[in-house]
Amino acid sequence: MGQLAQNLTDIGYMDTLAAGFTRLHRLDPRAKLLTTALFIVAVVSFGKYEVSALLPFLLYPVYLAAQGRLPVGHLLKKVLLVSPFAVVVGIFNPFLDSGVLLRVGDFGVSGGWVSFASILLRFFLTVSAALLLLALTGMNSICEALLRLGVPKAFVVQLLFLNRYLFSLTAEAESMSRARALRSAGRGGMGFGVFIQILGHLLLKTLDRAERVYRAMLCRGFDGHIRVARFSNIGRPELLFCGAWTALFIVFRFVNLPVALGQAVTGLLK
C-alpha cells in the first residue's frame, strides 16, 4: 500500500515537473525526444570495457537537470531505486572475467570489474536521460512528438488514454487495498483470494468506466477518430539544441576526451 501511494505521488510529481516553464520545457518535444534517442544510442554503442569515454556523456543529463531546474536529489533517488536488472546480471562479470585489464602502478583491475563499472555507468546515463526527458516534456507532449514522427495514431491515442486514466485507476487501486489493509487487523500481506477479488472488482469498475467514457465521447460527436489540434513548431531553439548536442555526442563518441585530458595533465606533471 505504501508503495502504491508512493507511486501515485511519484507520477503526479513527474507531471508537476513537466509543467515547468524553462526554455527546455518549451522546446518542441520532437527535439528532446530525438536528441535523447541519439544520446542513448551513442552511450550503448561503446565497447563493453569502456568507462572513461562514457564520462563526458554525463554532461547531457547534468545540463538538462540544471537548465530545466529539476530537483536533482529526487531524480537521483529515483534512478538508484529502480530495480536494476542490469546490476543483478552485471555483478557476475567480475567473477567470470578475471583477466587483468587495467593497471595503475602495481595494482591490476580485472576486466570483469571494468565491464561491471561500464554497465553501471550506462545504466545511470540511459535511465537518467529517459527520466529527464519525461520530467522536461511530460507524457502528453511526448505523445504529440510520437504522432508527428509518424508513430501510428492508434498507438498514440492508446498512450494518451492510458496516461489520462492511470492516475484515476491507480488511486482506485490504492483506496481498495487501503480499505483491505484497514480491516485486516494487522495481518500483514494480502492473500491470493482477496487479491483476485480486488483485481476482479477493479476490472469490472474499469469496464464500466470505459462504457461511460465511450458514451461521453459519443455525446460530443465521436465518430471513431480522435482529432488532435497542436500548435508547436520546430524553430531556431530546436535546431540549436539538436545540432549542438549531436555535434557534442559525435565528439564524445569518437574522441576519448578524459584520456586526452589525463594525458595532458600527467604530461605536465612529468
Binding site: N140, C143, L160, N163, R164, R209, V213, A216, M217, V228
Partner: peptide, 17 residues
C-alpha cells in the same frame, strides 16, 4: 468520465473538432 483528453483546452476542443 467526460474529461478524457490530455489537457483542458483539448478536451473543450474535442467536440468542436
Amino acid at each position: 468520465d467526460q474529461l478524457f483528453m490530455p489537457t483542458v483546452f483539448e478536451d473543450a476542443a474535442f467536440g468542436l473538432l
